[in-house]
Design a protein around this nucleic acid. Structure first.
Lengths: 204, 204
DNA sequence: AAATAATTTAAACAAACGTTTAAAAAGGTT
DNA sequence: AACCTTTTTAAACGTTTGTTTAAATTATTT
């Protein structure tokens, strides 16, 4: 099969299935998704799912690996980079991470679900040690406030960033809040996070 | 041989099934749970699940209603109570909510999952409007800092409290952290939250 | 054009699923 | 005891599930 050019959209059957899988797995989870749902969403014959990806589980692992990378792979390299200042890290992460989550609101709940249910699966293989051990970010936190527990602090930053998207269904699905209103709220949030992070570090 | 127990534990079949359902649904979710899993966990015959609860879905709704009440019903009455001061609210919630979450670490991810997947189900019927509208808590936030958006602020508090339990599988299941170490970390966290909440409110 | 390979299709497969059945066992009442 | 109700059981029910099959179609190579 000849490779398509960059500018062209990949409309191959394989890609159609992958995109459908991304959507359906995100919405319904692994056990809530039927192979037939993916086939229908992709508009292709049922057998093609197994023809291209061998099994539902293999396809899920593939999608999950993408998702895990999206959730962690975008934030970890920034935080562990020693040549980026602490303040710059907070600014960059607040801005880009919230943007990414606005585009992928189902991402956190999907990934945390999978890690809980299947912590050693192929799709979840990712080394998070670098962030939580002797990383540059931890040192920078210590420099700013030596009395703080860096792990507690990191849990709070990530929580402030990610939790609103985990709680999103309470507002959007359950509470009837308009999606656009919620997105605007998340955009507003970008301004608050750096201020609050600094307030926490200067506390006590 | 048959010595009477001090505490009257309900060992009825109905209660055994309910307890098994609480455990298995929490661990595997609705679609990941088979009726046979619940029967095995309860140590009873498969047909008894339907005999006592009519259907898997009815049993799930029952369990979910308990869970939703546990997650929201313990925190909302405190926050909307006008006769409790702001500082006292933060102290009470930090302490009791983290204690409750230590006992029920799977609770948040289970409830958010269900609300996302089935926002209008019977088990999820709970009015959260009182908290987010004209509640005493919102007024108290405004009194402390008139320039802050109360909803953004509440999202941060709840996020700081709840998110560590949503991310728990990353540390405990995936990262290999000892459960007791994690619990101790959450106990430590009780001290941080009120300090950080006040720091956020005094910021800028 | 003929031959070969890759893709797509409709149909079927065995296993697993939630649920039901009908009979047996246990408990209670008279 | 006999009778009736409640609980428990093993087995089976009809669907749905992920997956496979074998033939049909399309694409590529010779």
């Amino acid at each position: 099969m000849a490779a398509k050019r960059k500018t062209e959209v990949d409309t191959s059957t394989e890609e159609k299935i992958k995109q459908a899988a991304r959507k359906v797995f995100s919405e319904k989870g692994y056990f809530g998704t039927r192979t037939r749902d993916i086939a229908d969403e992709a508009g292709i014959n049922l057998a093609l799912v197994n023809y291209y990806f061998r099994s539902k589980e293999k396809l899920f692992d593939l999608v999950m690996q993408e998702k895990v990378y999206k959730l962690f792979g975008t934030i970890v390299p920034i935080l562990i980079n020693p040549s980026i200042s602490f303040d710059a890290k907070i600014d960059i992460v607040s801005d880009s991470y919230i943007d990414m989550l606005i585009e992928n609101p189902d991402l956190p709940i999907m990934v945390f679900n999978e890690i809980k249910h299947n912590p050693n699966s192929f799709g979840v293989k990712m080394q998070l040690g670098p962030l939580f051990l002797e990383s540059s970010f931890f040192k920078q936190i210590k420099e700013r406030n030596s009395s703080i527990d860096p792990l507690q602090f990191v849990l709070s930053i990530i929580g402030m960033l990610v939790f609103p998207f985990i709680a999103r269904p309470i507002f959007v699905n359950m509470g009837g809040m308009n999606k656009e209103v919620y997105i605007e709220m998340m955009r507003e949030r970008k301004k608050y996070i750096p201020i609050w992070v600094n307030a926490i570090l200067d506390a006590k």
